[in-house]
Amino acid sequence: MNAQEIGKVIPWALLLLAAAFVPVVFSPYWLSMATTMAMFVVLATSWALFSGPTHYISLATAAFFGVGTFVTGLGFQTLPFWMLPLIAAALGGILAALVGMVTLRLSGVYFVIFTLGLAELVRQLVTWVQNQTGQRGMYVLTSITERDIYWMLLGLAALVYLAGWLIGRSKLGFALRIIGNDETVARHVGIDTALAKVALFTIPGMAAAAVGAILAPRYIYIEPSTAFAPLLSFQVVIMALLGGTGRLWGPLAGVIPFTLLWEFITRQAPNQTLLLLGIVFLLIVYVLPGGFVGLWARIRRRFHQGGGA
C-alpha cells in the first residue's frame, strides 16, 4: 500500500468508527433504522461486487439469506453464536458455487429466472422438511440485542468492503471487468470465464447467508415464507442500482435514501411500498442510468470541462 492509498482508506476507517457509535448516541428507533441500513449495505454491496462487473442480475439474495436464518434457527441452542454466521457463510458459498456452476454458462436472462426460482425452491424444500417433521416455524430466543446485531453487521460490512477493495486490485477483478465488456475477448485472452464468475458469485452468497444468520434473532420467530421472501432480492437489486455498481461506495449511496424512504412510506401508506419499488426502478432506468455513481461521474466531467482544465 502506498501513501495515496492510505490517504483513501483513512476517511473510510473514520466513517466506520463513527458508525460504530450509532447505538451509543442514538435512540433505539434510529438504531433499528441503522441496523436495517447495515443489513442492506452488506447485501447490496456484495451483490454489486458480482453483478456490477458481470452484468448478471442475481435474484438469489433471499435464498442465501433464508439459509442463513435457518442456520441460526437450528443451531443457536447448541453452538456459540459467533459460529453461526461462519457456518451460514460456508453454506451460502457452497450453494452459490453450485448454482453458479449450473447457471453461469447460461445467458443473463436464464440466470435471472433461475436465481429467482432458487429462493422458492429452497423455501419449498425447507417447508417440506418441516412438514415431515411436524414443525411450522421456529423461535429464535437469544440474549443477542439489537446493538450486537448492528455491530456484527457493521463488522461484516467492513469485511465486504475489504474484499471488494482487494478484488478490485486483483487479477480476478481485472478479469471480471474484461468479462463484463466482452466475454468472447475474455476467453481469448486466457480467462477461464466460468471459473471467475463462479468464484465471484460465492461472495454475495456468503455475505447474504451470514446476514441472515446474524439477523435471525431480530425476527424472534422464523418461518420459510418470511425467511425466503423474494421481496428482499428485489430491494437489494433496486438499492444497488440506485446507488450504482461502478464504485465500491455506490450501493451505500443507494441504501441510505432508499431505506429512509421505505420507512417513511411504510408508516404513511403501508400498502404503497411496492409502488415505491416500481417508481425507483423507473427512475433508475430513465433518469439515473448508472445510479448515483453515474450521476457523480457526469457532474465531475462537466465540472472539469467547465473549469477549462
Binding site: 478479469a175 471487468r177 466482452d182 468472447t184 475477448v185 480467462i191
Partner: peptide, 19 residues
C-alpha cells in the same frame, strides 16, 4: 472487438495477464 469501458492501455494489458 475491444473492451469499450477500459482504457487503451488496459485493453492491451488484458492480453498480457492471463495468456
Amino acid at each position: 472487438r475491444l473492451l469499450p469501458e477500459l482504457s487503451v492501455v488496459e485493453n492491451v494489458v488484458a492480453g498480457a495477464v492471463f495468456g
